[in-house]
């Protein structure tokens, strides 16, 4: 069963990110990898850097900023492959941001398209 772990952080938590937080994120990714459950994942840049697009009547509409102006933003995501929801919750609980942010766990639908174009890991 494949799941997405979606990390939502407040703007303050976003701005507080330091080297330690980045290192913790990396260590977590390595742990997922070592357990053989990681499909892929990354932290995201701040919502200030987001651009949102939609296509209506064949025209692209582009605006500055994230999809929704909320108090909490998607800050990172991971895709994992584990037996069931309890196993996914177990991994989500170990996420370094789980102690101050929120982790949403969602099952992936259908098949996953493997990439392979990543230049670095």
């Amino acid at each position: 069963m494949k799941y997405a772990l979606l990390v939502y952080e407040s703007e303050e938590a976003f701005n507080r990110r330091d080297e330690q937080a980045v290192a913790a994120g990396r260590a977590y990714g390595e742990a997922l990898q070592a357990a053989g459950v990681l499909i892929g994942g990354a932290g995201l840049g701040s919502p200030d850097t987001a651009t949102t697009l939609s296509v209506r009547d064949g025209r692209r509409q582009i605006h500055d900023g994230p999809y929704a102006e909320t108090k909490e933003y998607l800050a990172g995501l991971g895709l994992i492959d584990v037996p069931d929801l309890d196993a996914a919750l177990e991994w989500a609980a170990r996420h370094p941001a789980a102690g101050y942010a929120k982790v949403e766990i969602r099952p992936l639908l259908g098949c996953l398209f493997p990439g392979g174009s990543g230049k670095s890991s």
Binding site: P83, D84, L85, D86, A87, R106, P107
Partner: peptide, 8 residues
């Protein structure tokens, strides 16, 4: 069913 909540 969809989120695969385990029967355990």
């Amino acid at each position: 069913r969809e989120a695969a909540i385990p029967f355990r």
